[in-house]
Design a protein around this nucleic acid. Structure first.
Length: 289
DNA sequence: GGTCCGACCTGGCAGC
DNA sequence: TGCTGCCAGGTCGGAC
């Protein structure tokens, strides 16, 4: 679910409440959402003070003041929710004695901060993962990721060079986090549509002119999606919401993703869904070449 | 080293 | 109405 804009929206929400706060109590309700033993994880975060919150690719990076790094990856259905102190007290009162009864469905971990704020990690599919690592370990992991698409160092020339080295199709290439970090199925489809590039085109055949268009499209669609707080599908609790429960508004502005059969907003040909790398790809067969 | 594919886990939904 | 099978926004590890 969450791609760069959704993770960025959650990080901005967390940044409003988390920096400077200490984790008073950590509870892991389902061990599969932490890497390694749950007990080891709760011991690692309890008592730790959070110095800052950042995003790298689709990782939420909580910097602890002793230099360690608390990483969270949401995968398909993970989300972080902030519950303000007053709401925590109300929920706890109403919950009676049953532990965890005050928590929303599919809450996999809960963290009480020293000011009474509660952070909830909610993940119906339980594919998300979090862990605490050393600064060196995080640097090594981070080094394997591709450039950040919204970083000034990510230029059309850089993208062109990366594309030229790959025989894969451009759609699957852009999903590879070691090539360009943070893109997922939705925004790759949109960026390829905006730049009129077929998802089937081989990466090395994109060339510098199309690469420049693609670069512009990637930056524009990500900027726009962040401005609209990401994409929510308006379906269920599987859906993405921001840290304060806000719904992303980008869905109404998607041109091709999840629009099979609808007319292309540019040429009116029906949008087609194909499968690439076991994933759905939406594109306009007429104006994407 | 690059690429491809299955597995991970669960809920939603279409089709029967 | 209830069951079955497919699909889902991501990533990793193993095989080639």
């Amino acid at each position: 679910m969450p791609e760069l804009p959704e993770v960025e929206t959650i990080v901005r929400g967390l940044r409003r409440v988390v920096p400077g706060r200490r984790v008073a109590v950590a509870r892991v309700l389902n061990g599969t959402v932490v890497r390694g033993p749950a007990r080891r994880f709760t011991q690692a975060v309890e008592g730790a003070r959070i110095a800052g919150v950042e995003r790298r690719a689709k990782f939420i990076v909580l910097r602890l003041d002793d230099g360690r790094v608390w990483l969270s990856h949401l995968r398909m259905s993970g989300k972080w929710l902030v519950v303000r102190p007053r709401r925590v007290r109300e929920k706890s009162r109403g919950a009676g004695r049953r532990p965890g009864a005050e928590l929303p469905a599919y809450t996999r971990a809960a963290f009480d901060l020293d000011d009474g704020t509660r952070l909830l990690y909610v993940d119906p599919r339980m594919l998300g993962e979090m862990e605490v690592v050393t600064a060196e370990a995080w640097r090594a992991r981070e080094a394997a990721l591709g450039p950040e698409p919204l970083d000034p160092a990510f230029t059309p020339e850089v993208l062109d060079e990366l594309l030229a080295g790959s025989r894969r199709n451009v759609k699957e290439f852009l999903l590879d986090q070691t090539k360009v970090a943070g893109l997922g199925n939705i925004y790759v489809a949109e960026a390829l549509w905006r730049s009129r590039i077929s998802p089937r085109r081989r990466a090395r055949n994109v060339g510098p002119i199309r690469a420049e268009r693609l670069h512009r499209a990637i930056v524009d669609v990500l900027d726009e999606a962040i401005g609209r707080s990401g994409t929510s599908f308006g379906s269920t609790y599987l859906d993405y919401v921001g840290a304060e429960g806000e719904v992303g508004e980008m869905y109404d502005f998607l041109a091709v993703y999840d629009r099979e059969g609808e007319p292309c907003p540019r040429c009116r040909a029906p949008i087609r869904r194909i499968v690439q790398g076991q994933r759905s790809t939406y594109h306009c067969p007429r104006c994407q070449r």
